[in-house]
């Protein structure tokens, strides 16, 4: 795979330097058998240093969930070698089973099979709260 160009896939750009592996794990990219490139500490005019992830495959994942990690990252969709869409992920209204509620008094602490659902309660403050106990999500 040529790191500079992919044919059909996704380039996740403007990742805060050092955060690429977190996104790699978050999207479970380790489970893919297509080429994946992680570029660390690339020089960026805007950010000084940044990370980039290039995935040479059309993924069937909700990339907006990345908005929870960092809404400033850029997602580029590549088709036939051309960039067809460039956007920032939106903050998802709910996130399920991505973070866990850490409140020991929450019902999720005793019912293991319950999904851990967090709702966006304040878009300005990027604040999520547990659907059940309403505790704030800790990042």
């Amino acid at each position: 795979m040529n790191i500079d160009s992919i044919n059909n896939g996704i380039v996740i750009d403007h990742i805060k330097a050092g955060q690429a592996m977190q996104i790699y794990d978050f999207l479970n990219l380790g489970a893919l058998d297509c080429p994946v490139a992680i570029i660390k500490n690339a020089v960026s005019n805007k950010m000084g240093r940044k990370d980039i992830i290039k995935i040479d495959s059309v993924l069937d994942v909700d990339l907006n969930a990345l908005g929870y990690i960092d809404p400033a990252i850029t997602i580029n969709l590549i088709k036939d070698g051309e960039r067809v869409r460039k956007y920032h992920p939106e903050l998802p209204a709910t996130i399920t089973n991505i973070i866990r509620c850490r409140n020991p008094r929450c019902i999720t602490s005793i019912e293991q099979e319950l999904p851990h659902v967090f709702k966006l309660t304040d878009r300005e403050k990027d604040e999520y709260r547990c659907l059940y106990c309403e505790s704030k999500a800790g990042k």
Partner: peptide, 10 residues
Amino acid sequence: RHHKEGAPTV
């Protein structure tokens, strides 16, 4: 009534 928070939401 439940001792755990959010049980009625479940």
